[in-house]
């Protein structure tokens, strides 16, 4: 069986917000180390990988590995019934077709209980190769959100170029072009810092609508990392205290 007690429903809500527009159904793979989810969008352009560590829960017990097939729209509805600071317990028996969610109010005696149907999901888990990336950019997640949102007003794609100068995001639209250069900052310790580690110059083009989607994870984590090598998928990584959410995005490449 699974029993996982989270300090706050808000963490799960934010996580769902960050993936629900990319994927509709996903298996939450539970084992003694924690909960993992890997899912691709319908067009096979983007992949999201989530990990929640067992140690990050107030209480965690999973006797044997079990997949929980979840419709994310349904889970979003059930989570809306929780207050952000409710203590939240997820429970499922072995071979169960129901996920039980219990919300305990922090400052009152309210206890709410919900049961949600689980489903069988055929998921083809992809093997993601360990990659040595040529460039790693670390920046405030809010800045990343802003730049992709701004450029998505202009065009469909963004070219991301990393050089010693900094990281440049450029988009060409029918009516307007735009580019944003973010220079490396001196003070690495500053939470507003932009740091660039680079073996070689990289230049890649991606669909902006996916990046706008990924950037919703800014609510989970103040920093984001972009990992890039020429002609391979971009990795957008948000590490928060209890785990991580990582997105992979296939590039657009010339014929």
């Amino acid at each position: 069986m699974l029993e996982a007690k989270l300090a706050e429903a808000g963490t799960l809500k934010k996580l769902l917000d960050a993936i629900k527009e990319l994927v509709t159904d996903a298996n939450f793979e539970c084992n003694e180390e924690g909960i993992n989810l890997q899912a691709m969008d319908n067009s096979h352009v983007a992949l999201v990988a989530v990990h929640l560590e067992a140690a990050g829960f107030k209480r965690y017990r999973c006797d044997r590995p079990m997949p929980l097939g979840v419709n994310l729209t349904s889970l979003t509805k059930v989570l809306k019934c929780a207050k952000d600071d409710d203590i939240t317990t997820l429970k499922a028996a072995d071979e169960a077709d129901v996920l039980n969610l219990v919300y305990e109010a922090k400052n009152s005696d309210r206890i709410a209980e919900y049961d949600m149907k689980l489903m069988d999901i055929d998921s083809d888990t992809l093997g993601i190769p360990d990659t040595e990336y040529d460039a790693r950019v670390t920046m405030p997640s809010a800045e990343f959100t802003r730049v992709v949102r701004d450029l998505s007003q202009l065009g469909e794609s963004v070219r991301i170029e990393v050089s010693k100068e900094g990281v440049r995001f450029a988009s060409e639209g029918e009516a307007a072009n735009g580019s944003v250069l973010m220079k490396q900052t001196d003070d690495d310790e500053d939470t507003q810092a932009i740091t660039i580690e680079m073996n070689q110059h990289v230049s890649l083009t991606f669909s902006l609508k996916y990046l706008v989607n990924f950037s919703k994870s800014a609510s989970l984590c103040p920093r984001v990392q972009l990992m890039m090598s020429n002609d391979v998928p971009l990795l957008v990584a948000y590490d928060f205290g209890q785990g991580y959410i990582r997105y992979y995005l296939a590039p657009k490449i010339g014929d």
Partner: peptide
């Protein structure tokens, strides 16, 4: 022109 690649051409089925 640029073509959108699929992730399946980069990642193997595990």
């Amino acid at each position: 022109s640029l073509k959108q690649k699929s992730l399946k051409s980069f990642f193997s089925k595990g």
